[in-house]
Design a protein around this nucleic acid. Sequence first.
DNA 1: GTAGTAAGTTACCAAGAGTAGGTTACCGAC
DNA 2: GTCGGTAACCTACTCTTGGTAACTTACTAC
Lengths: 208, 208
Amino acid sequence: MIPNDAVRARRPRMSRAEREQQMLDVAEEVFAERGYGAVSMEEIAERVGLSKPMLYEYFGSKEGLLLGVVRRARGELREVTERAVGAGGTPEEMLRRGYVAYFRFNEAHRRAWLVLLQEPVLLRSAAEEIEAIRRQQSEMMVELLAAHLPDRPRRALEAYAESIIGACERMALWRARTPEVTPEEAATHLMNLTWTGLATLNRPAVAD
Amino acid sequence: MIPNDAVRARRPRMSRAEREQQMLDVAEEVFAERGYGAVSMEEIAERVGLSKPMLYEYFGSKEGLLLGVVRRARGELREVTERAVGAGGTPEEMLRRGYVAYFRFNEAHRRAWLVLLQEPVLLRSAAEEIEAIRRQQSEMMVELLAAHLPDRPRRALEAYAESIIGACERMALWRARTPEVTPEEAATHLMNLTWTGLATLNRPAVAD
DNA sequence: GTAGTAAGTTACCAAGAGTAGGTTACCGAC
DNA sequence: GTCGGTAACCTACTCTTGGTAACTTACTAC
């Protein structure tokens, strides 16, 4: 039988790289909107305009697809914050710029960020992979702190770094519910807490 | 046919309340160990010594069961921290005791805490429920801060509260990977970061 | 123009979430 | 003591969905 060219023409063949990105786009959107558990591979395939086995061809499993989404998003975020921090200046300036960059990122890439923040924890089987990404985040922060606090034990710096990252994440979640708070304001709050410290905060000099 | 009494005797009937607790115990253990996605309702039922429909009778769905586990754990945690903070003293003391209580809790109730921290995010459909619990946590912290910082805008206090809670969570995760850090040490790190502040930290007086 | 490969398909399986409808044990009332 | 009524509990199913095997179609280099 002769294939229906009119129909075939609607599904242009793409290179693997292109398709992958397209799949990640769709998956990111739909995971962020309704959550990993509520979305079927069938549906994602349909939205991409392909059949299910192609998703498995490229990502191996549903978790693999999610991991792809998370990895890409995490990479982008990392790039943004590293550029912000790497621009130099005093530790205070670097920290502040890092905060601002983080909050701007999750404002601009809301969907990516939602997936990034909310989903990785359910990936038991991909835990090591995720762990590696986290460690990277944390190491960057430790370096930043080490420049300012050269005499502190490494262990303490790690603790600060982890705490700060946790604070950022939760602050971002809060900002999602309180959209009138700008990235700069959020950064100021975080600076007041982590840099100035609550003890010194009741001096009227510090504004937020 | 006459039922096999020997077999029946192994499955004593229990009151609803008792069974519920037992089911929550099993679910908590197994979710914490292998993750929500990797555990089937069939298996949980089997471990409890009942058949699947009983789980559905009591919890409605798999998510409902998870929610039950989370709610119970969160309640216990809340009790513990509220008692610690409620004992009074200076804001600094209260904050510190709160931190210590939190880290002690997740040391003593490792399984409960793992579920608590790692799973709720995947519950899209139960999001409001979870949100309510979170708000409670955050409100308690806001009250604590308000006593110390009466002149700050509410909005700022909320931001601090959210950040602090996020810092606690992530710190707890870090502690799970670094078990030699005691609850008291973790609390000290957090105090140094949030109370003292990084700016003042390079004075040699503060130890951690 | 044909061989090889990479993109894409249909049609299936297996596992597990959730349910309909029935059975067994307990408990209070007469 | 037996007889309803209820609450705990079961067997046996359905249906969705993650995952795969085996095939077909189109592009690309020689």
